[in-house]
């Protein structure tokens, strides 16, 4: 199907075209098998909406978030400056991303390196289009399903985006339920600050085990997430609790894509 092709920035540039918005896929979205399915779901939404967008593809580098937070500023600067050069070369103005870590770094940390863009998270992108009536969500598939939502630290506390992902979920006509610790008091999934790439330090449990349990405590059918790392961590936590058959961890882009049969 030709409409499900993904436009690449370099190809458009060769034709002298500048798309309105860049979809920043992120490393997890590009390489992690689970996160790839979220990338596909969101790209299908973009295609279905007829969005004028492109991805960087092979030219995209890690934003440097894990390096900077692990304390390796040299590696961060090398990656970030390379990205800023690429983005500026393509005259990028607006970026949407499915990863709150990429979102935060692009939005808050690139300006001091000479990279000024309007950056939005895919939850905000979808909320805006739902509000404008451009994205019509068919609620059928999730009608009456119990859905809870886990706030990613880098979307919530770090950038105060709490309502957009909830608005997206509420468009589904489902039974939305909050965890006891939500919004600014949400517990981290355990992956941030480069923890994704190492084992937890010694303690009495893993952080993702604890957070998954808090989610399972509200008996959801779905645990909605808005971050590829939260997705991995909570999927593992749900598995550890032996609940993977009844409870699905799912990104908000997948919810919308599934609801609309994309």
């Amino acid at each position: 199907m030709s409409e499900n092709k993904v436009p690449v920035m370099a190809d458009l540039a060769a034709e002298g075209r500048e798309p309105e918005i860049l979809f920043w896929v992120g490393c997890a979205g590009s390489f992690d098998q689970r996160a790839q399915r979220v990338t596909i779901a969101f790209a299908k939404i973009l295609n279905a909406l007829g969005t004028d967008y492109a991805v960087l593809g092979k030219e995209e580098c890690c934003t440097g978030d894990p390096a900077r937070r692990a304390g390796n500023e040299f590696v961060f600067q090398m990656l970030a400056q390379q990205n800023v050069a690429t983005l500026n070369a393509y005259n990028v103005k607006k970026i949407v991303t499915t990863c709150p870590h990429c979102f935060n770094t692009l939005k808050n940390e690139y300006p001091s390196l000479g990279g000024d863009y309007q950056v939005i998270h895919h939850s905000q992108f979808m909320q805006q289009l739902i509000d404008e009536g451009k994205l019509v969500v068919e609620g059928g598939a999730f009608k009456g399903k119990r859905i809870t939502y886990h706030d990613p630290c880098y979307l919530g506390r770090a950038n105060d985006v709490y309502e957009a992902p909830r608005a997206v979920i509420e468009s589904l006509d489902s039974d939305f339920v909050e965890m006891r610790n939500c919004k600014s008091k949400a517990l981290c999934c355990g992956a941030g600050g480069a923890q994704m790439w190492k084992e937890d330090e010694p303690g009495n449990s893993r952080i993702n085990t604890k957070r998954a349990q808090q989610a399972l405590d509200v008996n959801p059918d779905y645990i909605a997430v808005a971050c590829p790392y939260c997705n991995t961590m909570l999927t593992d936590g749900v598995k550890e609790a032996g609940k993977q058959d009844g409870v699905k961890v799912i990104d908000i882009a997948e919810l919308i894509a599934m609801a609309n049969g994309l």
Binding site: S30, F31, T39, I40
Partner: peptide
């Protein structure tokens, strides 16, 4: 990328 994947495969998805 933080994993051992080649950037060349960055569009395989």
């Amino acid at each position: 990328a933080p994993w051992q994947f080649s950037r060349e495969d960055g569009m395989n998805w």
